[in-house]
Amino acid sequence: MKKADKTNTIKALLGTLLASATILVALVALSALFYPKDNRAEYGVHDQEANGVLGEPENSLDVLFLGDSECYCSFSPLQMFEDYGFASYNLGTHSQRMYYGNSLLHRATEHQKPRIVVIETDTLFRKFSISSTMFQMMQDALPVFEYHNRWKSLVPEDFTQEPVHTYFNGAKGYIARFAVNAADDEGYMDEEEEDEERLERIPRLNKRYLQYMIDYCHSIGAEPILISTPSTVNWNAKRHKAVEKFAAETGVTYIDLNEGEHKVDIDWDADTSDSGDHMNVSGSRKVSDYVGAYLAENYDLPDHREDEAYANWHDQLAWFHKQVW
């Protein structure tokens, strides 16, 4: 290479590096600007219920629940607190893909040290692309990618204020459904003869994410547990088998509330809000009761009911009894 060419190449490389660094610095600065200054929807936070976990006192939660709508309709942290004393939070969000669940898990465990992380299994079958996971990583590293649309609502305080988390969710992430629409549960967990050996495949990328999340849970000292909540629409024998196989291979505890020894006695005429898709309040009471008892019995979870630091949980329970039950 000629000397002049070499100089030009070095110049071009340095220029590219400098420009890349400039873009990165600009994105970091924009991220600070666009990041919502409070974890409330009116400040631009997405999935306020799940992000309410940021408003919980540091290291106050024992159990975290992750998953899609099956999760946030089924597990009621307040009920489990009332009956069994441990403190939990439901990080379920609408149509949650695993990459987002993973992001919420990391977000929550920045200030929490849960002993148990429950992953509701419907999310394992929600497909996603490598682009989505990459985009989630970008959003986690540089929040401007998640909150860029706040350019529409920026206020002077966004330039000066440090983010705070004043919002906490009264129901601890649980979302109550009151409607009652009966389901036909006839044989939804039956194995069709020709399908006896077949199982629905957990998509490869989901499996990798699940393994990554399990490893992460272990690394922070939390026990991962897979739970399938009752659903005639979303659950079946093939999915059960697939998760059972994965759990056996990885040594993770798996509980299926649809069948077998952990089956919860769901009244499909009264306990579902939308013909077997989701649990309603009545169904979630049964699920929360069973799961709360199981976790309390099998894991050494603390009882915070007499703890002064958890006084506001009792206030929330009073509200919960009035509003939900």
Partner: peptide
């Protein structure tokens, strides 16, 4: 000049990041 060229490209990229219709909404 190199500076102008890079500024144009960086501004374009940042405009896409901020004003692009992508992501959550």
């Amino acid at each position: 000049s190199t500076l102008v060229r890079w500024v144009v490209l960086i501004v374009l990229i940042l405009a896409i990041v901020i004003f692009g219709a992508y992501g959550y909404d």
